[in-house]
């Protein structure tokens, strides 16, 4: 059973994710319009849910996985709030 090999491969995946989060954060902070920022936060949080799952395997602590589900659900709620606000502002109440 050479689980060390697979664990080292998964370990070297972490810097790729960190680079991706840095790029998402740049777009979320400097986004020219409001939907750009919300879209960047949306994508970043969904990828963060995947990254949290991988980290909870690498930390050997399975109880940390419950954050991923809650994060995915509530970021969708943020998305719907902003969409509803944008639509009701121009189209009338």
């Amino acid at each position: 059973m050479n689980s060390e090999l697979y664990l080292s491969v998964v370990f070297w995946v972490i810097p790729i994710y960190l680079t991706a989060f840095a790029l998402y954060s740049v777009r979320a902070v400097k986004g020219p319009t409001i939907p750009d920022s919300v879209l960047a936060i949306d994508s970043m949080s969904y990828d963060l849910a995947a990254f949290i799952t991988i980290l909870s395997i690498l930390f050997h602590s399975p109880i940390l996985i419950a954050v991923a589900m809650v994060l995915a659900l509530w970021v969708f709620a943020l998305d719907i709030y902003v969409a509803k606000y944008l639509e009701s502002r121009e189209m009338g109440e």
């Binding site: 954060s25 902070v29 970043m44 949290i52 954050v67 809650v70 994060l71």
Partner: peptide, 29 residues
């Protein structure tokens, strides 16, 4: 909302998933 998401990451990495579970609905939702 960006600040809330980054604080969720900090709570997670400091091994406090219970605080993160309460912080997500309040500050993101």
């Amino acid at each position: 909302a960006i600040q809330s998401t980054t604080y969720v990451i900090l709570f997670y990495l400091l091994m406090a998933p219970d605080i993160a579970l309460v912080y997500i609905p309040v500050s993101v939702g």
